[in-house]
Design a protein around this nucleic acid. Structure first.
Length: 112
DNA sequence: ACAGTGACAAGTC
DNA sequence: AGACTTGCCACTG
């Protein structure tokens, strides 16, 4: 069974809007877990696929896709992002253009 | 108990 | 642009 922290991370990820991306650290922060970027990575790895989380909208703080460049996982992620009109060049996304900046209302809806 | 290992990040050089 | 270091902590052997 997933821990409370893991479930909070899943909740945040589910709120990243289509066409936008967030970093592992940002997701952890929003989940009330500052400094826990690696837990975000773990949470995505163990997430049951029935949740259908938009895991591919989560990138490194640099905007890079976390998977090794050229790997099947990286290619799949880039493809999913481009379907949402997010531009992926050389395994990375420009956070300046596509980074998610949650509005106040969105933050208010969070359960903490 | 203990050492390694992560879908990471920020700081330093 | 890289390469390293430290901090994070759940999980695994």
């Amino acid at each position: 069974m997933a821990t409370e922290s893991i479930r909070r991370i899943w909740l945040i990820v589910s709120k990243i809007p289509s066409g936008k991306v967030a970093s592992y650290g940002q997701v952890a922060d929003l989940a009330g877990l500052p400094g826990r970027a690696r837990l975000t990575a773990r949470a995505l790895k163990v997430a049951p696929k029935e949740l259908a989380l938009p895991w591919y909208r989560v990138l490194r703080s640099s905007g890079e896709i976390a998977f090794a460049k050229g790997s099947d996982d990286a290619k799949r992620q880039a493809g999913l992002l481009q379907e949402e009109n997010v531009v992926v060049l050389n395994n990375r996304v420009k956070l300046k253009s596509f980074g998610w900046e949650p509005s106040l209302e969105e933050l208010m809806l969070l359960p903490f």
